[in-house]
Every structure is written in C-alpha cells, then in structure tokens.
C-alpha cells in the first residue's frame, strides 16, 4: 500500500514531479513506479533502508543515472512541467539548473578559489568572478574561514569545510534545485550541525531534495518526507505526519527504528 498526502504546490505547480518513474540497472528494478511532487522552496527528505532506491531516485533529477552503464529509466521526471528525459533535453543543461552535493566531500585537487570558479568557468560566465566566488562561499557559510587562503589547496580544509566548499561550488552555478546525497554522513556531529543549519538557510531560495540515513536529521530539516522501501514509495507527506503519525505500518516500523 502507498499513501500520498495532499501537498500544497501553489499556483506555479511543483518544482519537480515524477510520474510512474521506474529505474532499472540491467534486469534489476531499483525504483518501482514512483510518483510524487516536490513543491518549490521546500526541503524534501528521502528516507529508507539501504538499497531502497532513494539515491537512484535522487539521481534521476539531474540525469546522473545516465553515467551508469546499463541504467534505464521509464516514466516521467518533470522540472517545472518539462520532461527531463525527453529526447530533446541535454543532460548537461539539466545539471546546470539542478545541482548536486555528494555523500563524501569531493573537491577537485585545485585551489579553494578554483573549485568554486570551476562551474562558472565551464559555463562561460562573463561577470565579476571574484564577486561570484565570494558570494557563493558566503552563502555556504565558509567565507570567513577561507577568505585569507583562497589560493590554498581545497585539501587543506577539514572534511566539514570541504563539504561546505562543495556546496559553494554547486551554488556558484546558480542552480534552482539542490540535490543532496547524504551530505553529512561522512562528517562529525559538529560539522553535520553546520550543514543542517546551512540547508535551513538555503531553502529560502532553493528547492532541496536530500537523501539521508539519519532519521533525526530528516525530522529536523525537512518539510516533507518520502519513505521508500524496496524501490517503492510507501508514504509521502509532511514530515510531522510521517514521523508522529504515519499511516503505513512499514513507515512506522522504520521511523521508530524497528527495522532498517
């Protein structure tokens, strides 16, 4: 059984929507007929046990699954009503509007400055690069820590700082949507808290979809939560309802820690 709550998306419609979305890796079905909508400027958390398809689902929104050999997508994924998997769509353009932050911090082996400037440079940004780099680092709450060492290697930063650098790097391309794949799972509690505060700040301007293993984190930062199990969307609704009053038995079992 699947329960999808009514979700207010406003007049402009949802930022992202999937309809009957299925993803296969070869013969294996990783995502099984998932339909849900992500309202603009909200944080949606995808939760579920390992292997439930939440990362795969996330990677449909910026066509990162294209990079996996043998991956196949059926159904529709829409960004403001535009089907991201239509044949005319260029995945490179998609990724310029829908940015991604990965599980492990993955800065390039370049300077802090060049990491942030990478996206704008490949997008032929013609403006004040210094200002854009500074603004992006400020938005990622990293500027004060790195303002005097922009030319140093990104690897001189701590893990938490590196992850905020990766967020700054993504913001520098000025995306509308941020996809985050367990962005804090490799970080210590203090660095995690800073990332969570940052997500809270960012949702004023961005639509955020975040995969997390950490149920408290999902409860703290998200407006809506989707619970996936074995590739299926089991329950999707306001985070409060999912955590305090889930309608599906499996959701309850998972959020109360009885399995997973």
């Amino acid at each position: 059984m699947t329960t999808i709550y009514d979700i207010e998306v406003g007049e402009e419609g949802p930022a992202l929507e999937t309809r009957d979305l299925s993803v296969f890796y070869g013969e294996t079905m990783a995502v099984d007929h998932v339909s849900f909508r992500v309202p603009e400027r909200s944080v949606v958390a995808l939760i579920g046990p390992s292997g439930c398809g939440k990362s795969t689902l996330l990677r449909c929104f910026n066509r990162m699954n294209d990079l996996v050999r043998g991956a196949r997508v059926e159904g529709a994924v829409e960004f403001h009503g535009q089907d991201l998997y239509a044949p005319t769509i260029d995945p490179v353009e998609v990724r310029r509007h829908i940015g991604m932050v990965f599980q492990k911090p993955n800065p390039f082996p370049k300077s802090i400055y060049d990491n942030v400037a990478f996206g704008p440079r490949i997008n032929n940004f013609r403006g004040d690069e210094d200002a854009l780099v500074e603004a992006s680092l400020r938005r990622a709450a990293l500027w004060d820590e790195v303002r005097d060492r922009l030319e140093e290697s990104a690897y001189s930063l701590s893990g938490g700082q590196q992850q905020r650098l990766c967020i700054a790097r993504t913001l520098a391309v000025t995306p509308e949507v941020l996809l985050m794949d367990e962005p804090a799972s490799a970080l210590d509690p203090i660095a995690t808290q800073r990332i969570e505060e940052l997500i809270y700040e960012l949702k004023k301007d961005y639509t955020i979809v975040i995969v997390t293993h950490n149920m408290q984190q999902a409860a703290r930062i998200s407006d809506y939560t989707a619970f996936l199990y074995m590739g299926k969307l089991i329950e999707y609704g306001p985070t409060d309802s999912i955590f305090t009053n889930p309608r599906e038995e499996r959701t309850e079992a998972y959020v109360t820690g009885r399995f997973g």
Partner: peptide, 21 residues
Amino acid sequence: PRSLREAAYGLGATKLEVSTR
C-alpha cells in the same frame, strides 16, 4: 576517483570538459 568526475558532471560539465579540466 569517480567522485571527481561525478562532481564535474554535476556542475554541468561536458565529457570533454570533465576529461580535460
């Protein structure tokens, strides 16, 4: 590492940009 390639693709880099940059 694959993660560096993914980071670049995620920023809207083309295959050529990922390889050369």
